[in-house]
């Protein structure tokens, strides 16, 4: 599978993402410069963390208008898997590819610590092989990670199942003590209505090797690899195809269910 990792001026987690995808997970990785106008040939794209354009104006605001974002938008529109991590999440929000906005942390501090998040939706390629309620341990490092959406938008997001991760304690309880930055309803990550674009503040690429204290972040990358490859290659009767597409054998006359589709 072929990943693209986008590099903006002042991205600083791009090498970490490339390392995990290439060296740890054995995938092909293309480093995509922010002036690129095409993402042809890629199966998934990662917008890494950092402080793109110095976070000038607002975090992610200038990067969201960089040339490569036109390509990312087109890639997302045709169902390509896009993951925004930390600053990458902020960029996706500013680009309007994800709903909501980021405020400064309510605690008046830059938070650099380890958190737990609970998987709230498995209807995205990055969580498809996980289960709802799965608790993941990952680090955070941000000053503006206080997720905010005005009331009506928040209701829409909740009802559509677009909250993908919530901050929780080690046992999976969503409490205010477990909320590191004041995010509304402990939201740590969201997706677009189709589910193929996901953003989260924690850093899965910093939690993908045992030596770094946690391997939980690797599950997100493994999920998208499984999902994309299965959609492309797995025999239609296999369990793998079923997991990746959400289609049981009895339903396999139909086309794969779009990400984000929910059981009634």
């Amino acid at each position: 599978m072929r990943f693209g990792v986008v590099i903006f001026p002042a991205s600083n987690c791009d090498r970490d993402c490339v390392h995990v995808l290439r060296a740890v997970l054995g995938q092909e990785v293309e480093e995509v410069w922010y002036e690129e106008r095409s993402l042809d040939g890629l199966d998934a794209v990662v917008l890494p963390g950092g402080f793109a354009y110095g976070d000038y104006l607002r975090a992610g605001a200038v990067a969201a208008r960089a040339p490569v974002m036109t390509a990312v938008r087109a890639f997302a529109q045709v169902g390509g898997a896009v993951l925004g991590i930390c600053n990458g999440f902020q960029i996706l929000l500013e680009a309007g590819l994800l709903p909501g906005a980021m405020l400064r942390n309510a605690v008046l501090r830059f938070r650099c610590t380890t958190v737990h998040v609970r998987v709230e939706s498995t209807q995205t390629p990055f969580t498809r092989t996980l289960r709802e309620g799965h608790v993941l341990q990952m680090p955070i490092a941000h000053g503006e990670g206080n997720y905010f959406a005005p009331g009506s938008l928040l209701s829409t997001i909740e009802e559509a199942g677009q909250v993908v991760f919530r901050y929780c304690d080690a046992d999976g309880r969503v409490t205010s003590d477990a909320n590191p930055n004041g995010s509304v309803r402990n939201v740590a990550g969201v997706c677009n209505p189709a589910g193929n674009v996901v953003g989260l503040m924690p850093h899965p690429e910093r939690a993908s090797e045992e030596v770094l204290g946690s391997r939980d972040g690797r599950l997100l990358f493994e999920s998208v690899i499984t999902t994309v490859i299965a959609r492309r290659e797995a025999p239609k009767q296999s369990r793998l195809y079923e997991i990746a597409t959400g289609l049981r054998p009895s339903q396999q006359g139909r086309s794969p269910r779009p990400f984000g589709a929910r059981d009634d």
């Binding site: 405020l103 400064r104 309510a106 605690v107 008046l108 206080n146 905010f148 004041g182």
Partner: peptide, 9 residues
């Protein structure tokens, strides 16, 4: 009504 953490600081 939107939290201004910078203002608070």
């Amino acid at each position: 009504g939107v939290l201004d953490a910078q203002g608070q600081a």
